[in-house]
């Protein structure tokens, strides 16, 4: 499965997985995301970069309607996944989130066993019929997340007892277990040490063959390492979006250039 297909050259051939048009996000009075338009390619990694408070995380959370859980947050515009508008009143955010999984900044395993952590998603969505099937989903997800060998002998132990990097990979396994089509990652490595970060980055690279991944990151090196496409956000605006190589070597916008050369941020 460890196939590394260079998708950079044939992105144009693929259909867009996610299409966002004129997206506005308001936090109460604050206009946090201003008129963002972006297309996200399937089976690739898209990185959102930009200085703190630029709205990249906020925008990421609109993609699986996590912002619904915040009372004062309001989203306008149109975001569709596979051509279906996710803000359509017919859409149940619960079903949407099964399709668009998410991994968070801080590893947040539930205070349950490793097995239960991974089995939680399939259970609530009723993805398996028998215990054997569930066992299989759990082990497959842990294998995909590259954690199987480390935890296969202690699936009954608490998920919170793992190291930070293992916890984050457990969270990724948990997200994969629901068989999402898109995985959103909100600075997944910011709480990890460099070795754990390298492992997670490696994992992201492997996962992109099956999943559409959108990752928010603070680190431009990370964006350059793992992503095929990069979008630069600044003060709620999407300044520039394009192939990662182009953004880092030949930015079109002055602000992008300033940012990647370290003038601000």
């Amino acid at each position: 499965m460890n196939v590394s297909v260079n998708l950079e050259n044939d992105v144009d051939l693929a259909q867009h997985k996610i299409v966002a048009k004129n997206v506005q996000v308001y936090y109460g009075e604050k206009h946090a995301i201003k008129d963002v338009n972006i297309n996200i390619q399937p089976c690739s990694v898209t990185a959102f970069i930009g200085p703190s408070g630029c709205g990249k995380s906020t925008f990421l959370r609109t993609l699986n309607r996590m912002n619904d859980t915040i009372d004062i947050c309001r989203v306008e515009g149109n975001i569709s996944i596979d051509g279906e508008n996710i803000y359509d009143p017919r859409v149940d955010p619960v079903q949407l989130r099964a399709k668009v999984g998410m991994v968070f900044q801080k590893p947040n395993p539930f205070p349950k066993s490793i097995y239960e952590n991974v089995a939680y998603g399939p259970r609530i969505h009723g993805l398996t019929r028998t215990k054997a099937e569930l066992d299989e989903v759990v082990s497959a997800s842990l294998q995909k997340a590259g954690l199987w060998n480390e935890v296969k002998d202690r699936l009954d132990e608490g998920g919170t007892g793992l190291s930070g990097g293992q916890q984050q990979r457990l969270c990724i396994a948990r997200a994969i277990a629901v068989s999402p089509e898109v995985i959103l990652m909100d600075e997944p490595c910011s709480a990890l040490d460099p070795i754990a970060t390298a492992k997670v980055e490696e994992l992201i690279d492997e996962l992109r063959s099956n999943y559409t991944i959108v990752i928010v990151t603070h680190s431009m090196q990370q964006a350059a390492r793992v992503s095929q496409r990069t979008a630069f956000f600044h003060l709620g605006n999407l300044v520039e979006e394009g192939a990662t190589q182009d953004i880092f070597t030949n930015p079109q916008d002055k602000r992008t250039q300033d940012y990647i050369t370290g003038r601000f941020g």
């Binding site: 996944i81 596979d82 279906e84 996710i86 359509d88 017919r90 859409v91 149940d92 079903q95 949407l96 399709k99 993805l127 099937e133 299989e136 989903v137 497959a140 068989s179 089509e181």
Partner: peptide, 10 residues
């Protein structure tokens, strides 16, 4: 693992 086919979220 058997994955349920993509369905409309509508």
């Amino acid at each position: 693992v058997a994955i349920s086919p993509t369905k409309s979220i509508y």
